[in-house]
Design a protein around this nucleic acid. Sequence first.
DNA 1: CGAAAAACTTAGCTAATGCTAATCTCTTTA
DNA 2: TAAAGAGATTAGCATTAGCTAAGTTTTTCG
Lengths: 154, 154
Amino acid sequence: MRRSNDDAASEPGGDLLPDAADHARQYASVRRAHETELIEDYVELIGDLLAAEGEARAVDIARRMGVRQATVTKMVGRLSELGLVKSLPYRSIFLTDQGQAVAERSRKRHVVVLQFLRAIGVSDATARIDAEGLEHHVSDETLEVMRRFIADLQ
Amino acid sequence: MRRSNDDAASEPGGDLLPDAADHARQYASVRRAHETELIEDYVELIGDLLAAEGEARAVDIARRMGVRQATVTKMVGRLSELGLVKSLPYRSIFLTDQGQAVAERSRKRHVVVLQFLRAIGVSDATARIDAEGLEHHVSDETLEVMRRFIADLQ
DNA sequence: CGAAAAACTTAGCTAATGCTAATCTCTTTA
DNA sequence: TAAAGAGATTAGCATTAGCTAAGTTTTTCG
């Protein structure tokens, strides 16, 4: 007997196996986040470097991302195609307005997540690591909840 | 004047630009999580299907992951190489002991993150979506903090 | 200034994950 | 039981993101 039973686990209490279509949507959402994740990380880092040092050079991006310069060059090309950065060969890299907006949004997200983790009692070192991974998977709603949580502590 | 200044932003208050080596480690950590993420999702889903329905078939995995059956076949091959699942052609899929361990750990993680999100006031629908994305980026330390947070509410 | 060093780019490779189209196997059912 | 339908697999393609090695450009410094 072979038969799909997607309805087998739709009892409200079950934390496992939600409705199949919803489930697929969840994973689709993760995959989507996944695609923009790296892009946002690069753009955010470029923004941070510009803010901290006035320029963003491939060698610094490479060092901080922990990748090779060749990888940075390739990625910058991709960011350029996406209209997020402007760059001329052998020159340092700048953000377009659109890139700046992305960087700013990522930075804000990052800070909220980081502060939230610290607020609930996670150590600084761990909070930094986790924030980097978590920031791209936190919805606007959750971010707002975190923001309020931090605010309520003061 | 071209010169790297990794020390430019090491003042304690700065949430941006940590020490370059640490920064690279953070990203490396995210990349590592990234690699295991999908694998864990598949294994966890297979475990959930086995628990809920007694068998895990490619068609159901595909439907729930929101992916084509061909993709599932390929992925199952990969999981098999990794020693996480056992499968014979045209037969349904089972977890090895190692796979079972991975599934269990993922499931526990998932539940803690989900409950935590609900506990801080995130809506159920959003919590489900976010939990899926967040669970792979939460360190053991943060998970423990979340667990305590939930426990303290009771 | 000119050579060495540093930074950047290009070319070509690999691996992972998705897809479609075509085919094969198994199950159901007329 | 044989044909139709469902499920699974294979082959082949595309994209992304990393790498190394080799070459080019820019910067630094003797």
